[in-house]
Design a binder for these strands. Structure first.
Lengths: 202, 202
DNA sequence: ACATTTTTTAACCAAATGGTTAAAAACAAA
DNA sequence: TTTGTTTTTAACCATTTGGTTAAAAAATGT
């Protein structure tokens, strides 16, 4: 009995994931989520009191899957170029599986950054990022890489990892004229890492 | 008399720009736009029949400002590194003024690409892009730059130019802890161009 | 068979919102 | 002052939408 209930709740969360990703918080309709989950609105509200709570649940779950490992990768003691490579792979691995995460963060964390920031702090991303920032600065001071604002370097890496996921549907049309882009994306983690490393190495 | 009318319409468009950028199409409220413009809802509907039309006007105007010059920059005969620099500057210039363009294109034009693709073809972006692709390929063949799939290079440039605009509200908090990021963004066009060129040059 | 839990049905409410209307008022040009 | 245009006021409508309710029904466990 408990199984059935939990299965339904998972169906709801999956449906919500999909609809929220496509329409955003404001654009999503509770009825549409219920339809997508194959249930009715009453049951939807039975399990999740309201839209906000439902969104919060979906959003936080997704973000945790991204941020937890990210913090680990940022905080570990590996050499910088290795770390960059790890970062790229992590981003691509998670985002290919959960491509809706960036859309969430971009459309919703912009409107309401508090929630997102709270999660970041909880997962320890802030400190981990600071550590990497110092590592980059040290590499620059030691003349191991070209001078660059560490924040810009991190922002560049994020851009190169996240944007292709988000823009995939458009890129398929304007760049890869309907070729299969899945394979391209899978190999892209290494290509992007190469691109970044090539740009900063002496 | 005509002046006053047109001034009001411009105030409306400016207000709409701002609100749509912050809240998106679904999240924006006509009342809020009217308030922002310093007029009332009746007058807002007097000049712009409905929300859709208002958005269409703002959006198409903005996208033309992006695509038209983009096609020109892609199609002209300048040297590749210059072209990359021009591209970056153009992206940053337009997107700082119309930061909602990427969000809309990503969220709405993905599901219904007709309008966007129509505009792209109309502005001649497709042919211009093809020309640049060939130029890149030629540079590679002549050993002037490192080998890279031209499509990936273009995708990287787009990522580095567009994503920071989209992720600005988040970056302000997690990277630039509430520093003024406007100045950073303005200077970023050149930095990004450097970054790209550094990465591909021999 | 009985009790418990899950799900549906279907009607309903309240608030928000896009949009309309018509008349008054403010304004500018002649 | 007269005339035409712009703007405000303020009430109003229709629809959408989030959310509730209560009872029936279906499914499930014991």
């Amino acid at each position: 009995m408990r199984e059935k209930s939990e299965e339904t709740q998972k169906q709801i969360l999956d449906a919500a994931k999909k609809i929220f990703a496509a329409k955003g918080l404001a654009g999503a309709r509770m009825q549409e989520i219920a339809d997508e989950a194959g249930i009715n609105k009453a049951l939807l509200h039975y399990y999740y009191r309201n839209k906000e709570k439902l969104f919060e649940q979906v959003f936080e779950g997704a973000i945790r899957k991204l941020l937890g490992p990210l913090a680990s990768f940022l905080a570990d003691d590996s050499e910088l170029f290795t770390k960059i490579r790890n970062l790229c792979h992590h981003y691509y691995n998670v985002l290919i599986e959960y491509p809706f995460i960036p859309i969430f963060v971009l459309s919703e964390a912009s409107a309401n950054p508090d929630r997102f920031l709270r999660l970041m702090k909880f997962e320890g991303v802030v400190e981990a990022k600071e550590k990497t920032r110092m590592q980059i600065q040290q590499y620059i001071n030691e003349g191991k890489i070209r001078p660059i604002d560490p924040r810009e370097l991190l922002w560049n890496i994020m851009s190169l990892c996240i944007f292709p996921i988000v823009s995939r549907p458009i890129a398929v049309e304007i760049l890869y004229s309907n070729d299969d882009v899945s394979e391209v994306l899978k190999q892209r983690a290494d290509r992007v890492a190469d691109f970044v490393i090539q740009s900063i190495k002496m």
